[in-house]
Design a protein around this nucleic acid. Structure first.
Length: 414
RNA sequence: GGAGACGUGGCCGAGUGGUCGAAGGCGGUUGACUCGAAAUCAACUGAGCGGCUUGCCGUUCCUAGAGUUCGAAUCUCUACGUCUCCGCCA
């Protein structure tokens, strides 16, 4: 959520942002709702001041043994008026809040303008795709032949887009999780967290998945609980509705969790293999910091994710998401894309974003500056560190041998 | 799941329906003292919103929501949470 006053005082910038994001919205709606809101507040507060004064006089009159009933009758009528105005105000504010909650974040100046993923500039490339003396196979062929992935059993137990990992497949998934968590906690200074895998609606509103993207989420029946689509949700909300001391910042969290996504808009895409599942494992990194440091923190966060790929010796490149491709809550996002030899192209394996104060404002996450200044909203960042299932794919495909076996990355050898 | 108790500021903890944003303490900041933020003393110390003469005025907030009342931290109802006992249980 953006600050209404900021939006109204940066109309041109905001209109350009909406256009570049392909988001259609008329800002005049906000301006007129805000005007109405202020008008009602003026009226209601004046009435309340008079009521409070009147009530004080009733108390004084009763203490003095005088008859206060005419005065009480006046105040009662005032009370009815106040109630009507308060109801009206609540409706206006609800409408206003609803618009603000579905408006995307502003964009960083360093986020390029572009239409779609084809306009994302490559920032840097690491490693070179390996040369194969044979035609590299897709991971599903290799893994099924080795008996480490069972796609049919996934469908039998659940649905399409669910997979069973078995034997050394399950073990490598576990090894990758442990490897990533150890790296981020021991080397990069993150605090390991194990959060609930289900959260209530307000938590998802805090990070921006609700109210707009409910169709992407799994909801628990008869409960106000949803399965988390990413650990970003519980981790970022850990500090919601608090005012931190600046000395407590930055805060670094990391967590392994399964992630649950409906993939509602992805019909027909990546239908084979482990690439796009309704349930997948991810190690996530979250940072809470001051506005002054958030873009430096984004660079560090991204390099923390890159280090996972470097240690696994998987070729990748980094792209800067353009305005037409970037997520709803992000001001700037770097995607890490890993090389998949069977597809002969780079595929997304991590997404690192600076949300600035967009999420913090939604969840009431603030800090008190060390210089004693006014309380401010913190900045929040999140990044995959990294998607575990896709890493398993990348290892299988990049480390495959002609005989159908897979070499083990040096970093994973105990 | 059953029975009972309870939910007050960063923390602890008072609070009889009226002058309570809320005593007192702890913590924090500043000043005095000092070689020294060790001790002592003093002052200050919540957030949101609206207004304008930008420092003040007004308003809201005592878990949340609804109600009673001229007036609610205080009374009623509901939800959520915490604690104790019983039951069940990885």
């Amino acid at each position: 959520m953006l600050d209404l006053r900021w939006i109204l005082s940066h109309r041109e910038e905001m209109e350009a942002c909406l256009k570049n994001r392909h988001h259609d919205f008329d800002l005049n709606i906000l301006a007129s709702l805000d005007e109405e809101r202020r008008k009602i507040i003026g009226q209601t507060e004046e009435l309340k001041a008079r009521r409070n004064e009147g009530s004080r006089r009733v108390g004084a009159a009763k203490k003095a043994g005088e008859d206060a009933s005419p005065l009480m009758e006046d105040i009662r009528r005032m009370g009815d008026e106040i109630k009507a105005l308060d109801d009206k105000l609540a409706k206006v504010e609800e409408t206003l809040h609803g618009h603000l909650m579905t408006l995307p974040n502003r964009l960083s100046e360093t986020t390029p303008v572009g239409n779609d993923e084809n306009d994302n500039p490559v920032v840097r490339t690491w490693g070179t795709p390996g040369e194969f003396s044979f035609e590299p196979k897709p991971h599903w062929d290799i893994a099924e032949a080795l008996g480490i992935m069972d796609f049919e059993k996934g469908v039998m137990l659940a649905q399409s887009r669910f997979t069973v990992l078995k034997g050394l497949g399950a073990r490598m998934e576990r090894a990758l999780i442990a490897f990533m968590l150890d790296l981020h906690t021991k080397k990069h200074g993150y605090t390991e967290v194990e959060p609930p895998f289900m959260v209530r609606s307000a938590i998802l509103e805090g990070t921006g998945q609700l109210p707009k993207f409910a169709e992407d989420l799994y909801k628990i029946e008869n409960e106000d609980l949803w399965l988390i689509p990413t650990a970003e949700v519980p981790l970022t909300n850990l500090q919601r509705e608090t005012i931190l001391d600046e000395s407590a910042l930055p805060i670094y969290y990391t967590a392994y969790t399964p992630c649950f996504r409906r993939e509602a808009g992805s019909a027909g895409r990546d239908v084979r293999g482990l690439m796009r599942q309704h349930q997948f494992d991810k190690v996530e990194m979250v940072k809470i910091c001051t506005p002054e440091t958030s873009y430096d923190e984004l660079e560090k966060l991204t390099s923390n994710a890159e280090e996972v790929l470097q240690l696994l010796e998987l070729p990748y490149h980094v792209v800067n998401l353009c305005s037409g491709d970037i997520g709803f809550g992000s001001a700037k996002t770097y995607d890490l894309e890993v090389w998949l030899p069977s597809q002969k192209r780079y595929r997304e394996i991590s997404s690192c974003s600076n949300c600035e104060d967009f999420q913090a404002r939604r969840m009431g996450l603030r800090y008190r500056p060390a210089d004693g200044g006014k309380v401010r909203f913190a900045h929040t960042l999140n990044g995959s560190g990294i998607a575990v299932g896709r890493t398993l794919i990348a290892v299988i495909e990049n480390y495959q041998r002609e005989d159908g076996s897979i070499a083990i990355p040096r970093a994973l050898v105990p």
